[in-house]
Design a protein around this nucleic acid. Structure first.
Lengths: 341, 341
DNA sequence: GCATCTGATGTAAGCCTTTACATTTCTGCA
DNA sequence: TGCAGAAATGTAAAGGCTTACATCAGATGC
């Protein structure tokens, strides 16, 4: 199983083909600069040896890797997964490779992953959200590695981002809910510490409440980690309170789906007894019963746009412009008007 | 934005700290081999410069990367995502890093990704399923890189795998369905070319049919790519046929959920008019209406076990043993007995 | 106070590839 | 046939890190 023969190098290929390493290198990188006959010999040697170029050595010699790294909070979230898939597709079309890491929503892990991706030669990084120790940005600057934030939009933040306005999107949803006469509102949110998206979404609801003359602090809030089970538990707690909400906002669809499941378990009719709304519009939310009313996020477009921006940054040193993509509310079955009786 | 100052190297740190590069290297790799005072100086320099070791150079010099690569068909599938998360957790505990790539279920892309991960220095690879051009295995052998197959279990295959018996699992499910008096069966499967898991699952159903004295060929089969929409379409086609099945097997839960959605859209009662069963047991299947009866796959355990096996292969050259983890049938609401009227 | 040993640090080679530059081979034309 | 110029190929340095080995400074024991 272990190395009885060392893995072949450029040198081995060159020897076997009877040419110099430079020629082999050219064969691999600029095939049209070598004669057909030579190329055939070399390629035969490459196949015979099962040669694969050593990425590290190549990166070191050529000073570029054509690799872009991305760090997402979790791979289990379908939203990130889809955005990333689009991101990778676009990247590949520009001849770049994607390196992915996940941080489990932990700041310390994220920092380690950032360093690891940079050390691995990533030419640039894609990050989710703005919230991050300033030291990390300094580190990236020191390394001259551009970074692009996505999933968030904050025109006041000096770091560029390609995302969407979480606050405005959630505000729009909240206004819709308020327009349907709901007045007792609750929110099941992802933990808000070091999560600017979650905070922005809550602020959006409060904005709408204020606009409707309600006290923003009246919003009941439960923070809980990502997961169907957690959403269900939080929902149960909310509905056991004396003063039940009539509409429950969920910071993301996964929590929303958990809430829906719990409602059924408790024998509560959605939207008859209580309305539930989500955020993200992942596939899940179309197949629940009732289907979940939610905020649609343009994952694909966002991923592709981020990829193009990052490629431009790397290739031409072109600074990225902060852009917001539009979100929209998808009305399905889980939100209804309150009978103003 | 672009490099006005080059990124700092070991040498720069050494100069700033007034020591040699060897000392800096030792500080980073074997902190206890340098004096406290020296270490402090060096670390201060590291921080001041924002130094990060160059992975390629390090790999080249030390001849190992402590990195394991994994190639999954798609990131969008929650099943792979969960297994991978467990895999990564376990890997990290052993001091290894995970490199992920996805192949979009395409053999050519998978091959490119395999080469890319090896070139990037992966010490070993995790692959999904056995089906693969033999040349790829030869290549891996030539590179002396161990590979472990997961998600599948085939004791006859010489390549080691840590997975589960797709065929037996699906057969058990089919026997359950047959015991409930269903006789007209259909299968919505992922494309079976170059997908041994999909084929094995179909064989499992046929095995059970044969055991019940039915003609295995009577199984109606539709192949369609991964996706809720595709599952829905396939289900619609199945139910428009003259001879409707009474039970529809789905090769995975995502297709199953699509079938469920379509059933509702067509006004068909599940399981009253038709039963639907899935495979994988992803979170999705608990929240549909009715909840999906499915085959539970031990993602987490599988990921962790695979990680341990791979680490042992890399560290001690210990060959992996092919092992199968148990699956189980999760009865939910989408499967019911047929009224033998 | 000296030889010896230990622990801390420095020196320099080597890992594999790319690429600027040097050299050789070929082509075409006078 | 011979030569200029182009095309093909070779030579060798550079890139950042680890590590075997060499060196040096103190500590130890007598």
């Amino acid at each position: 199983m272990n190395a009885d023969k060392p893995t072949p190098t450029l040198h081995d290929v060159a020897d076997l083909a009877g040419v110099s390493t430079a020629t082999v290198s050219r064969c691999l990188n600029f095939p049209d600069r070598v004669k057909q006959a030579t190329r055939d010999k070399v390629m035969a040697a490459v196949d015979a040896l099962g040669y694969a170029p050593n990425f590290g050595a190549r990166a070191m010699a050529s000073q570029r890797t054509n690799t872009i790294g991305a760090i997402i909070p979790t791979m289990e979230n379908a939203v990130f997964a889809r955005g990333l898939q689009a991101f990778e597709d676009e990247l590949r079309q520009h001849g770049f490779t994607l390196l992915v890491a996940s941080s489990s929503y932990r700041a310390d892990v994220e920092e380690a992953q950032i360093r690891s991706l940079i050390a691995r030669g990533a030419d640039a990084l894609l990050l989710i959200g703005h919230d991050r120790d300033p030291a990390i940005y300094q580190f990236l600057e020191g390394q001259r590695k551009p970074a692009l934030v996505t999933w968030a939009y904050d025109p006041d933040n000096p770091r560029p981002s390609v995302g969407f306005d979480n606050r405005a999107a959630m505000r729009a949803m909240a206004e819709k809910v308020l327009a349907l006469h709901h007045r007792k509102l609750a929110l099941i949110s992802a933990p808000m510490a070091s999560n600017d998206r979650a905070r922005a979404r809550m602020m959006g609801i409060r904005d709408a409440m204020a606009a409707y003359g309600l006290t923003p602090e009246a919003l009941a809030v439960i923070e809980t980690p990502y997961g169907i089970e957690n959403g269900a538990d939080a929902f149960a707690r909310l509905m056991q309170a004396d003063d039940r909400p009539t509409a429950v906002f969920c910071g993301n669809d996964v929590l929303g789906v958990g809430a829906l499941r719990q409602a059924r378990a408790m024998g509560l009719d959605v939207p008859g007894d209580v309305s539930v709304v989500g955020f993200d519009d992942i596939e899940l939310s179309q197949v629940t019963y009732p289907p979940l009313t939610t905020v649609h996020v343009p994952h694909g477009a966002m991923g592709r746009k981020a990829a193009r921006a990052l490629v431009a940054m790397v290739l031409h040193g072109q600074p990225a412009e902060t852009t917001a993509l539009p979100t929209e509310i998808v009305m399905r079955g889980s939100l209804a008007a309150i009978d103003p009786a």
